[in-house]
Structures are given as structure tokens and as C-alpha cells.
């Protein structure tokens, strides 16, 4: 190891090569489970465990229609998409508005409200789930889309994230907008929001992921099959020893696709958010 390190120090070029080798290694480690899942989706149970399972000797998309049709993954995917998008929109709207208010507006009880939001951060979902379920039951929310969405439209972490992002905007820009004749809504729309776009993108992606991966809540508030979401569908496919592993893996991969798509779409925003950092003019 020491000798290797020395050699890397000697030439900047080999240092770069080493760095990319390391990156390639990390990428391979990260991507391996995905590759394995794709391959397993093609194989039977008895082929598992042997390394042959990883050889891409055949590509069989036969289990895709099964997963979408028989296993009803199609319907579940649509439901999950509708619910997740609604949750993302709700969370972004409430986080942006509340974050702005907590960052800039001077009103009685602001500190108390901020403390309340902070406190709710440490309350686990498991504690609120019973009360939420009770409320939704009494409002007649079982088997409705709004019941899947409503408990999640306010997101303390999102509020905090947006508040921090807004506080990062140079004070002068906001003062300038005030002098230029803008009220709070105008400032929010024309100045503040465009400047925290990368945070909004990160928040959207994060909240989509959380919403998409939900299992317990959708299971609680739905009984009808046509209201159920993708994670329940996956659970329904899994038996004690598992039926057709190919269908399970295919379904799992199908459930992962929307997240991959979103990552690619938001990639630029996210990277800009990570690298730019400063909004100074």
C-alpha cells in the first residue's frame, strides 16, 4: 500500500488514473445489486447462489406483462405516481410558503412556531400514525386518494430546508426588491424562489422518494385493490419462499424506474445546487 501511495504521488497522471479506478470500483459496487436484480429476474430459484446467475445468457422480458397485468403492478404504479406527485406538490408548496414566512416575516409567535416545527422533526412517523389514521377514518378517508396524500402535505424537514435556503439569500437582494416595489408574494415569486431552485429540486426528489416508498400508511388507509400503491403490490407478490422470483424482481425493477427517471431529470439542478452554493451576483 505504501509503495502504491508513493508511486501515485510521483506522477499526477497516475494519480488521476488511480482516482478514476477508485471511482469505477465504487460505481461497480453501487451498481452491482441493480445488475444482480436484473439478472435474477431472468433466472429460477434453483439457479440462485451459483455465480452463473450473474451471466447474462438470456434476456427475457416475459415477466414484464405478468408483473404489470396479473400482478396488477400497472395499476399500483399509476396510483403511486398520482399519490407521490400530489405529495410532492403539497410538500413543496407548504414548505416554500412556511419556510419563507419563518425566514422573513415578523409576526407574533414566530419563534414558538419555529420551535414547534423543529420539535415535530423528532417525532417519528410511528407515533403520529395512529392519530392520523383515527382522523382519516373519522373523516371517511379510507380508500380515497386524499387520505393517501393529506397527512404528508406538510413536511417539517422541508419547511426547515426551505427556510435555511431562503436565509442564505443575501439580505440586500430582498431589500432591493422591497424598494423596487414588491410585496412578499412578488419577492417570493420573482426573487426568492428562483434563487433556491436547486433546493426545491432536491426537496422534490427527496419527498418523492419518501412518498414512493411508503408502505405502512397506504396499507392502513386502503382496502380496495384499485387504491393501493406499488409497495403493497410488491409485498403481495412475496410469499414465504417466494413464488416466481423473476416476477418479483421485475416488479421491483419496475417500481424503481420512476425514481431513476426523476434522478436523471433533476440531475442538473441537483448538481448545480451542490456545486454552485453561492447566489451572489
Amino acid at each position: 500500500m505504501a509503495a502504491d501511495a508513493k508511486r501515485i504521488e510521483l506522477a499526477a497522471g497516475s494519480k488521476l488514473v488511480a482516482r478514476y479506478l477508485l471511482l469505477a470500483l465504487v460505481a461497480a459496487i453501487v451498481l452491482f445489486p441493480v445488475y444482480a436484480a436484473v439478472m435474477v429476474a431472468q433466472k429460477s430459484l434453483t439457479e440462485l447462489g451459483s455465480l452463473d446467475v450473474l451471466v447474462p445468457d438470456r434476456i427475457d422480458l416475459g415477466s414484464v406483462p405478468t408483473a404489470l397485468g396479473e400482478a396488477r403492478m400497472g395499476r399500483y404504479l399509476v396510483n403511486s405516481a398520482v399519490v407521490s406527485v400530489a405529495i410532492v406538490i403539497g410538500q413543496v408548496v407548504t414548505s416554500v410558503l412556511a419556510g419563507y414566512a419563518l425566514a422573513f416575516l415578523d409576526f407574533t409567535g414566530r419563534r414558538a412556531l419555529l420551535a414547534a416545527v423543529a420539535a415535530s422533526l423528532i417525532i417519528p412517523f410511528e407515533v403520529t400514525v395512529v392519530v392520523n389514521f383515527e382522523t382519516v377514518q373519522q373523516l371517511g378517508g379510507v380508500d380515497t386518494y386524499w387520505a393517501l396524500v393529506l397527512p404528508f402535505v406538510a413536511f417539517p424537514l422541508g419547511i426547515f430546508l426551505m427556510r435555511q435556503a431562503f436565509l442564505g439569500i443575501p439580505r440586500d437582494l430582498l431589500d432591493a426588491a422591497v424598494v423596487d416595489g414588491y410585496g412578499h408574494l412578488g419577492i417570493l415569486r420573482s426573487v426568492a424562489l428562483p434563487l433556491v431552485r436547486s433546493t426545491v429540486a432536491a426537496l422534490s426528489l427527496f419527498s418523492f422518494l419518501l412518498a414512493w416508498n411508503q408502505y405502512l400508511w397506504p396499507l392502513l388507509v386502503t382496502n380496495r385493490d384499485d387504491r393501493r400503491t406499488v409497495q403493497i403490490g410488491l409485498k403481495q407478490l412475496t410469499g414465504a419462499v417466494g413464488p416466481d422470483l423473476g416476477v418479483i424482481m421485475t416488479a421491483t425493477l419496475l417500481a424503481t424506474i420512476p425514481i431513476l427517471v426523476l434522478l436523471v431529470v433533476f440531475e442538473r439542478q441537483l448538481i448545480r445546487g451542490l456545486t454552485a452554493g453561492s447566489v451572489k451576483g
Binding site: 395512529v130 377514518q137 373519522q138
Partner: peptide, 9 residues
């Protein structure tokens, strides 16, 4: 149990 507790259907 959750449904029972919350008086649901």
C-alpha cells in the same frame, strides 16, 4: 388493532 382503536370500519 389500529382500526379497532380508531373506531374505523
Amino acid at each position: 388493532i389500529s382500526t379497532l382503536r380508531s373506531g374505523g370500519t
